[in-house]
Amino acid sequence: MEEIDRLIEKSLEGEKLATARLISMVERGDERASYILRKVYPHSGKAYYIGVTGPPGAGKSTLVDRLVKLFCVNDYSVGVIGVDPCSPFTGGALLGDRVRMNIKHKEWDVFFRSMSAGRVMGGLAKTTKEASRILDASGRKIIIIETVGVGQSELDIAQATDTVLVVLVPESGDSVQVMKAGLMEIADVFVVNKADRPGAENIALSIQGMLDRSLRKREWKPPIFLTSASLNKGLDQLYDGVWSHYRHLHHDCRLETRRKAQLKNELRQLIEAQFSEVIWRNIINNSKLEELVEDVWEQKIDPQTIARKIVREQLRDTFENNTVG
């Protein structure tokens, strides 16, 4: 048996080292990545995917650590993916989500993986999805993905998970008013963490106000929980709240609908990515592009027309070559 098949088999049996190796290969775009994903896919889809996002330092990792413990106590095996930003200059990263993990791995069945947002080839959603599928196929029943909610990443997390927890803190007060609609839209559960500090009730009220004013008709009213993760307060209620969203998803095929919508997006992105790869590899290269720039510069032709012409001609050539080959 090939080494890679042995690795996949071991990972499917739940072996951690094999699983870790597979995730690395997929993450760095190893040539065996698509083979791995193909073999693993049929075994995935059984886990419950939870996303945790919010501003830096809101206590997401501390909260995840507490939730993981509750899942473990209830006999679920858990996989966690902690995504942190990378340095835009060197591509290096300092991944710190693991600092808060105080779960005893000996006692509980947890697999924690840190990931750099800089390594996400083709978007955060793609890489976390691929890694979490490997965890899912290896038998983890609960998968939690933590990302910092700044910019695009919070929308990506909604693409990769079944339930999204948006974590805020009392200090987020003002920013709730200006909170990007995106973050409001993706939240299935709101958490006001650090509720041991003043202002927690107020922010909960303003979130509630925003939800009430929102015109969108909701089948699901996102609940708001006050927690103090570091003091271990309010976690049981939050845990139950997460499960109630899970139960909601299991009515009226909602989970299926949500996951199919995600798949549709995923497929669209993959097809586009592969198309442009083919185009750039086979059809047009940089020097060809520079020739065209000259033509456009001298106004022999306009950009729109030449782009359309190139694509049409070259696609035809590609198809003909393929039929001949």
Partner: peptide, 8 residues
Amino acid sequence: RDAGMEVI
């Protein structure tokens, strides 16, 4: 990190 490594 600044030397390009991923530090956990």
